[in-house]
């Protein structure tokens, strides 16, 4: 049992709230939200942090690692302050999704999974976000969805986040 160093009390309280959703003997059910909460705090999921989540939920570290590496939206490496995921799946591609991605690549001077020189942005290729009607769509740090991202709106967004 390592004593928590990275996981803040605030985070633990959030996790405790998630735990109330599940049967008492099924704490593991909260692991996805626990990791999401931890990631919101740290920007990514270093192994020590995953270990703490494992201890907090009383599950094997490797089982936490399995989850963290299975779901796309967990960051296993440090990211730019803003992770921008652009959907390039077919329906979006038909309505400018790929063009939007290309526009961002040249504007930020990075390719997929790369970090901008100023450390502010990481660009990643997203899969269908269930918002194909609003193409081009992108996500900022997993949680903020931006729709109909024309070049003008992309410029505005980058300005705002800079």
């Amino acid at each position: 049992m390592s004593t928590s160093a990275l996981l803040s009390d605030a985070a633990k309280r959030k996790i405790d709230r998630e735990l109330t959703k599940y049967p008492a003997d099924q704490k593991q059910s909260a692991v996805m939200s626990a990791l999401a909460i931890a990631q919101d705090e740290h920007g990514w999921l270093p192994n020590e942090l995953q270990d703490e989540v494992a201890n907090y939920l009383g599950m094997p570290s490797i089982a936490v690692y399995e989850v963290a590496t299975f779901y796309n939206m967990y960051n296993l490496k440090p990211m730019g302050r803003h992770k921008i995921s652009v959907c390039t799946n077919l329906p979006c591609a038909f309505s400018g999704g790929v063009d939007a991605a290309e526009y961002l690549k040249s504007k930020l001077g990075v390719d997929w999974k790369e970090l901008t020189a100023d450390g502010k942005f990481t660009l990643v290729e997203g899969e269908c976000m269930g918002a194909c009607g609003d193409a081009p769509v992108l996500l900022v740090n997993n949680k903020r969805m931006c729709s109909f991202m024309s070049p003008e709106k992309l410029d505005k967004l980058i300005e705002e986040l800079k």
Partner: peptide, 22 residues
């Protein structure tokens, strides 16, 4: 009775391993 090995990652990239450093 103890899970020391797991299958991390997904799809073609999934691999069997122990938790980093263990």
């Amino acid at each position: 009775g103890i899970m020391e090995l797991g299958q991390a990652g997904r799809g073609e990239h999934s691999e069997i391993l122990a938790f980093v450093g263990k």
